[in-house]
Design a binder for these strands. Structure first.
Lengths: 319, 319
DNA sequence: GGTGTACTTGAAAGATATTTTCACCGCCTG
DNA sequence: CAGGCGGTGAAAATATCTTTCAAGTACACC
C-alpha cells in the first residue's frame, strides 16, 4: 500500500526531480471513488498499459460479472495475471482488488436499480441534425455528471482556499483550454480578485517569475502535457506560488508542479467530437466551482460586485 | 489419538452431518439475495443464536459500515468470533462472508444513490464545497437538457447550411459570450473554414462592412440586447450576409437582424450564479451543434483536419 | 543497425482474509 | 450431579489477495 505509492513517488521523483515536495503531487489523489467508474476508466485509459486496459475494459463493461470473480478469475478472463489486475485496481484508485470488487458490486447494484437507456452511439457523418443535438447534449451531460462525481473536493477546497487568500492569481491555458482560462480570469476579476489569463507562453513565463508565496497559479490543460502551459506553472511552482492543475490526466507531467490537482472527466471521443470539445465542458465546471468557492469565501468583497453586474444586466434587459 | 479422533469424527458425523449437508445445498431457495436484507434478518432472527443475532443486527443496521470490515473486524465489532460471522452469513443465504460483504456493498450503494434529490436549491454562501459541485453540475445539466429540447432544428439546419456554404464566417460576442464566439471560430478554423471572432466592437463593425451575400455573420449574446454585438450584425444583415443570432431571449432586439435565431435556455440565476455563467453552457452546446453540423456537410475537407488534430494530440499523449 | 535503458508482464513467493475444524463451556435434563 | 447437547471461539487449513522478482519487449539513443 504505502510501498506502492512510495515506489510510484520515487519513480516520479527520479524522472522529474525538481519537485519541491513529492507529497503534494500524489499520483492518485482520489479517495476510494464513488460510482463514476466508467468515466474513470476512460480518463485513465491512456495512461494504462495494454493488459491493464483489457482489465479496465472488462471491469467497466460488466461490473456485475466482474464483481463475482476473484483476482485469479478476472486475470484468466482477461488473459492477464493477478498482478496486472491488482495494478489496474490501484490505478483506478483503490487500495487493492478487494476494494475494487466491493465498488463493483455497488455499481452493479446501482445499475440494476436505475437502468440507463442512453443514446450512446457515436456521432456519424450522416446523422440528422436533431440527432446531433441529442447526442451532443447527452455526452456533455454525461461529462458533467462524471466530472462532478469524481472531483476531489478536498483538493478543490484547498485550491479555493489558496485562491481566496491569494494576492494574485495567474491562469495558464492555450487553444481550447485558453478560453477556459480566460473565463476563469474574467469572472474572478469581476469579484475583485487580481486575476489574469495568459495564453501567450512567453508572457506567461515572464509573469510567472513575478509570483511568490501567497500567489496562485492555475494551469488548464486537458492532456496535461502541453509544454506551453507546464512551463509557466513550473516557474510559478519554483517561485513558491501555490499551484493548481486542471487536467484530464491525473498522472500527467503537469501534475508534478501542482500542489492541487483537479481532474476533469473525459467523454468518449470520436472523429466528429474531438477531445478538445468534450474536455471543455468538464473544465468549465471545475472553473465554475473554483469561482463560486472563491466568491463564497470573499463574500463581503464579492457581493457588491456580483449584484452590480446583475443590475447592469437587468438594466440592459429592459427592452 | 486415532481412536479418539475417529470416535469424535463419528459423533460429529452423527450430530452435525445434516447441517453440513444442508449448507452446500442452498439452505435458502432464493438466490444470493437482493436488497431485502433487513427483512430477512427480522425473519430469521428467531432461529438465530444470541451471537448470531448481534452480527445480523450490526449488518442490517449499518450495511455500508460493515461492508468495509473483514470477518475479523466484524467479529470484533460484535464481540464474537469469525466462525460466528460466517455462520450468520450462511444463515442469511450466502455461501460465505465474502458474498455477504459484496451484497452489503451493493446495498450501501443503492441506499447512497437513493438520497440525493434535493440539489435544486440555490447556492448559498455557506454551502460546503461538495454541495457547490453538486448544485453547479445539476444546474448545468439542466441547462443542457432544456436547451437541447427547445432548440429549433429547422433554424439550426438552415444556419448550418449557410455556414457550410459560406465564403467567410464572422462571429460576434463580448465578455462571456466573447469566449463562446472565439470557441466557435477556433473550431471552424481548424476544419478549414474561414472564420473569425470579433470582440472589439469597432473592428467588428469595420469587418462587417466587408461582408456580402454568401457570407455568414453569427451574433452571440445572452441578453439579446448587447449593442456592441447587435451593431455589427445589423451591418452584416444590411450588406446581404446571412445572419444568425444565438440568444437566450427569442424576442430581443438582436433577432431583428437575424435570418436564423437559435435560442438557448437559461437556468435559474442567483447571486452566486450570475446569468453569464449559466448562459454559457447553453451557448456552447449550440455552438458545438453548429460546428458538428458544418463538419458533417464539409466532411471531405474537414476529415483530414480532424484526424490531423487528433493525431497531434495522441502523439502528445504518449508519455 | 546495435546497444542500453526503461517499461511491461506473469510466475511464484509472501501476506491476509476466509473457512473449517475441533475442543471447551455452560445449560438443561434425566 | 452426570451426561448430553448446542453454542462458541481459538486455531489450523484453505482460499484469496499482494508483492517481489526475473525475464521479455519496445523504445530511444547513439
Amino acid at each position: 500500500m504505502s510501498a506502492a505509492s512510495q515506489q510510484s513517488a520515487a519513480r516520479q521523483a527520479a524522472t522529474r526531480a525538481p519537485a519541491r515536495a513529492v507529497a503534494p503531487a500524489r499520483p492518485a489523489p482520489a479517495p476510494p471513488a464513488p460510482a463514476a467508474l466508467a468515466a474513470k476508466v476512460r480518463t485513465l485509459a491512456p495512461s494504462m498499459t495494454r493488459s491493464m486496459q483489457r482489465v479496465a475494459e472488462a471491469v467497466a463493461g460488466d461490473p456485475a460479472g466482474c464483481a463475482a470473480l476473484t483476482v485469479t478469475g478476472l486475470a484468466q478472463l482477461t488473459g492477464t495475471s493477478e498482478a496486472t489486475v491488482v495494478r489496474t485496481a490501484r490505478l483506478l484508485g483503490y487500495p487493492g482488488y478487494r476494494d475494487l470488487r466491493l465498488a463493483l458490486a455497488g455499481l452493479a447494484a446501482q445499475q440494476e436499480s436505475g437502468r440507463a437507456p442512453s443514446v450512446t452511439a457515436d456521432i456519424s457523418v450522416d446523422d440528422p441534425i436533431a440527432e446531433v443535438v441529442a447526442k451532443l447534449a447527452h455526452d456533455e451531460r454525461q461529462t458533467l455528471a462524471d466530472t462532478a462525481a469524481s472531483l476531489d473536493t478536498a483538493q478543490l477546497g484547498a485550491a479555493v482556499a489558496a485562491m481566496a487568500a491569494g494576492r494574485r492569481i495567474d491562469v495558464y491555458g492555450v487553444a481550447a483550454s485558453g478560453l477556459v482560462a480566460q473565463d476563469l480570469a474574467q469572472k474572478l476579476l469581476r469579484i475583485g480578485m487580481v486575476a489574469h489569463a495568459h495564453s501567450d507562453p512567453h508572457l506567461a513565463v515572464t509573469n510567472a517569475v513575478q509570483l511568490r508565496p501567497g500567489d496562485v497559479a492555475v494551469a488548464i490543460t486537458h492532456s496535461g502535457s502541453t509544454g506551453d502551459v507546464i512551463e509557466p506553472l513550473r516557474v510559478a511552482f519554483e517561485h513558491g506560488a501555490t499551484t493548481v492543475a486542471v487536467t484530464g490526466r491525473p498522472g500527467s507531467p503537469v501534475t508534478q508542479y501542482a500542489d492541487h490537482v483537479l481532474t476533469t472527466s473525459t467523454a468518449r471521443e470520436s472523429e466528429l467530437r474531438p477531445a478538445a470539445m468534450s474536455s471543455r465542458t468538464g473544465q468549465l465546471l471545475v472553473v465554475d466551482c473554483l469561482f463560486v468557492g472563491v466568491a463564497q469565501r470573499t463574500y463581503d468583497r464579492a457581493a457588491p460586485a456580483l449584484s452590480a453586474s446583475y443590475e447592469a444586466l437587468a438594466h440592459r434587459h429592459r427592452r
